[in-house]
């Protein structure tokens, strides 16, 4: 049984929450350029570590807001709770984020906007 501290409502019973699975899976922007295997990384494959796991939770029977959690899947210890849109702050959480195979996938690379190209100078003569 987990006692989860909702960042908006405080500590509440586990039964008030729903778990949204692995956190930090970004949808590829240019999915047409990905192969089926690369897109499957985003769509079906999930990290399933034995140890610290970064996951999304929602206070479903409370404020209904989403947040992230770094939780150990062996001890169930909650190491860190941090807001959506940000990465883990703890050392262990950062290490888990960096260690995930997902960081190296083409799907994740395709989720970031392409670096902006320097705008070509207009020809004044035209």
């Amino acid at each position: 049984m987990l006692l989860i501290t909702c960042p908006y409502c405080g500590p509440r019973d586990e039964s008030e929450f729903s778990c949204g699975g692995e956190a930090h899976i970004a949808r590829p922007l240019a999915e047409n350029s990905l192969t089926d295997a690369e897109f499957a990384d985003y769509l079906f494959l999930r990290d399933n570590p034995k140890g610290l796991f970064l996951e999304r939770w929602r206070h479903a029977a409370g404020c209904r807001r989403w947040f992230n959690m770094a939780r150990d899947t062996v001890t169930h210890e909650i190491v860190e709770i941090y807001p959506m849109g940000s990465g883990p702050a703890s050392k262990a959480g950062k290490a888990a984020h960096a260690a995930s195979w997902r960081r190296d996938t083409a799907a994740e690379a395709a989720a970031k906007p392409a670096p902006r190209k320097p705008r070509a100078k207009k020809d004044k003569a035209s």
């Binding site: 039964s15 729903s18 899947t73 062996v74």
Partner: peptide, 13 residues
């Protein structure tokens, strides 16, 4: 149970 675990125990609810 609704969350991943390797602990061979579940939650009470």
């Amino acid at each position: 149970d609704k969350y991943n675990s390797y602990a061979q125990r579940g939650s009470f609810p």
